[in-house]
Design a protein around this nucleic acid. Structure first.
Lengths: 152, 152
DNA sequence: TTGACGCCCATGATTTCCCATGATATCTAA
DNA sequence: TTAGATATCATGGGAAATCATGGGCGTCAA
C-alpha cells in the first residue's frame, strides 16, 4: 500500500500535537520518506500533505529554470509556506500555528486520503466541502458516469 | 534530496550575527555541504542562498554552454559577489555589509525556503513581495491547477 | 588601540523525547 | 467458538534536549 486512503478524525492536544493515522505513517514509510510535508491548499481552507518525493518533483522539473518567474512564484509560495514534519515515537506531529489558522483548525482534525497526497481539514469545514462536492457530482452525473467508464 | 522549506524570522544582534534556522542547517548538513553560499538576487532586493553543490551544478551544468554569454553572466553576477559563510557553534553567521545593504536588512531577517535554495529578506519587503507573487499566481490559477493535476 | 572576528558560556522559551494509560484490535490456546 | 493474553493505537504529561539570543574574552590586523 503506497496510497493515502480513508478519512481519520484525531484530536489535537494542548501542545498542538496530533497523531498521524497509523495507516498514513505506513504509507509514508513505504515511500522511504522521512516524515511529511504540509502546505496550505491554494483552492480551499485546508492543508495539503505529501511525501518528500512529491515535492522533489517540483524542484527537479525546474532545476535551472531559475529565471522563469511564473513557475518560480508557485514554487516560492509552496516551499516558503511548507513545513516538514516528523513524528515522535508515538506517531504524532505538531501542526504549526500558521497552518492551523489557514484551515481554522482548533481541537479536531480530519486526515483525508487522496491517493498520492492527503489533506487535513477542520471536520465541519470538511463536511460542508463534501456536501458541495456531492451536489456538484450529482449535477454532473452524466459526465461522471462517462468518465468512469473511460477509465475502466 | 534535502529541501529548504518554511519561513523563519530571526534577529540580528549587535555584532551582526543571525541564527541560521536549525532546519536549514540540517538541510545543509544533509547535502554534505560546509556552510552556505549567499549572493544578491538578480531579480529582487533579497539574498539568494544555497549549498555548495548547487553552485557546482551551475558551473558544471550542460544546459549552458561554457563559453556562452549566459554562463559568463552567471559567473560574473553570482560568483564574484558570493560569500561563503560558516556558522559558529551556536549556528549563527555574520551577514556581510554589501549583502545587508542590497536587501535593506537592518535588525530582522526572514529566511525563506525555496526548495533547493533559500532567500534572505528584510521582513517588510518580503511581505510586499509575497502579496504580489500570490496575486500573480492566482491570476495564473488555471495553469496551477493543471500543474497540480499532472503531479497527482 | 580599536574594531572585527572566532570561540566559549549563560539563559529562557520552546520543542522533543520518554514513559504511562485506556481503548480497541489481533492473536492464541483450550 | 470463546476467553484470556498480547499488540497496536490514540492520547496525556513530565523530564530532558534544543534553539535563538545575549554577552564575555582573547587574537589578529589595520
Amino acid at each position: 500500500m503506497a496510497l493515502f486512503v480513508s478519512t481519520f478524525f484525531n484530536k489535537i492536544d494542548i501542545k498542538g500535537r496530533v497523531s498521524v493515522p497509523a495507516s498514513f505513517r505506513t504509507t509514508v514509510t513505504m515511500q522511504m520518506s522521512q516524515g511529511i510535508f504540509i502546505y496550505p491548499s491554494f483552492t480551499a481552507n485546508a492543508i495539503d500533505g505529501c511525501c518528500g518525493d512529491f515535492l522533489e518533483q517540483l524542484v527537479t522539473s525546474t532545476t535551472l529554470d531559475f529565471f522563469s518567474s511564473e513557475q518560480d512564484d508557485i514554487n516560492t509560495l509552496i516551499f516558503s509556506s511548507a513545513h516538514h514534519l516528523t513524528w515522535d515515537s508515538e506517531g504524532r506531529v505538531v501542526l504549526p500555528k500558521e497552518i492551523r489558522e489557514h484551515a481554522n483548525i482548533t481541537e479536531q482534525v480530519a486526515f483525508v486520503g487522496k491517493g498520492r497526497t492527503f489533506q487535513i481539514w477542520e471536520p465541519i469545514a470538511l463536511k460542508i466541502h463534501t456536501e458541495k462536492a456531492r451536489n456538484r457530482a450529482l449535477q454532473n452525473r452524466p459526465k461522471i458516469t462517462l468518465h468512469a467508464t473511460e477509465n475502466k
